[in-house]
Amino acid sequence: MGRYLLRRLVESAVTLVLATMVVFLGVRALPGDPARTLAGEEADPVAIDEIRRQYGLDQPVPVQYYRYLENLARGEMGDSLRTGLPVTETIRDALPVTLQLAVFSLAVAVLIGIGTGVVAAVRRRGPAEWGANTVALLGLSIPNFWLGLMAILVFAIAFPVLPASGFVSVFENPVESFRHLLMPSLVLGTGLAAVVMRQTRSAMLESLSADYVRTARAKGLSGAQVVLSHALRNSLIVVVTIVGLQLGGLISGAVVTEQIFVLPGFGKLTIDAVFTRDYPMIQGVVLVTAAAYIGINLLVDMLYSVIDPRIRVGGAAL
């Protein structure tokens, strides 16, 4: 357990360092001279040289990278070219929106996905399995941005029952927050739910045919007990891993969903930064995304070892 976690920690750290390099070099690969961009269109060569010195752009690339890391360590990611505000602060303001959206969507995905997955596995070859499979296939096949637009078309335009855009924090007004996040998180959650459903179903089919399920039935346990405390419990190990792997997809999905429902979150920040060629901001959001994703994966691995006693408590090898 200890050694496993240590190895994962080291691996994550290496990945994170590699990610900073990718971001750093990626921004260096952007077309155009950053000093010229920073100085503005009309700047004269002297001013550009001055900026180049000021930002250390005249230094060798490794030195620049070292400076970049130094600044990062201080939580310093430069100022937005568009607003002039520090990148760190802007990101900090946008994150809660995305986090609330992500938590809601994840809840939708897990509830729907695991629920239908279990039903599809237990009621084999019945209408329930057929229905669940159809929903999962549709969930995988419908692009969520289009689903979002259709939802707006139906629930905000044809039957105006939900707001089409905007964000209210759950801490300010829970009811309004829920109304504003309902459509976005359903839209974002269903795609993920489809994946979770399929994995749950196949994991459940696997564990339902396991010997320990036969034992549980031979003990006289009820169907629900067999499914929930024996089969599902084992399937969750697989499902947690899959959900973890899907979180990257959730971040991608949030970018689009925020764009459609005009949520002032991290994803919208990303897209706006790209369109305004706000390089410090691009660098910041991409790095934060990568760090978040690496962190989530580490967390999932730790969760995995909590659920599976074979990893948590050592002992006889399998």
Binding site: E11, V14, T15, L16, L18, A19, V22, G26, A29, L30, P31, G248, G249, I251, S252, G253, V255, V256, T270, I271, V274, R277, I282, V285, V286, T289, A290, Y293, I294
Partner: peptide, 24 residues
Amino acid sequence: SRLTDTLLAFPFLVLAVGLAAILG
């Protein structure tokens, strides 16, 4: 494997956004 993980650390849309910024 480490390179693969690094790529995975960037959600594909973020990756695409970055590439679009570089390549247009």
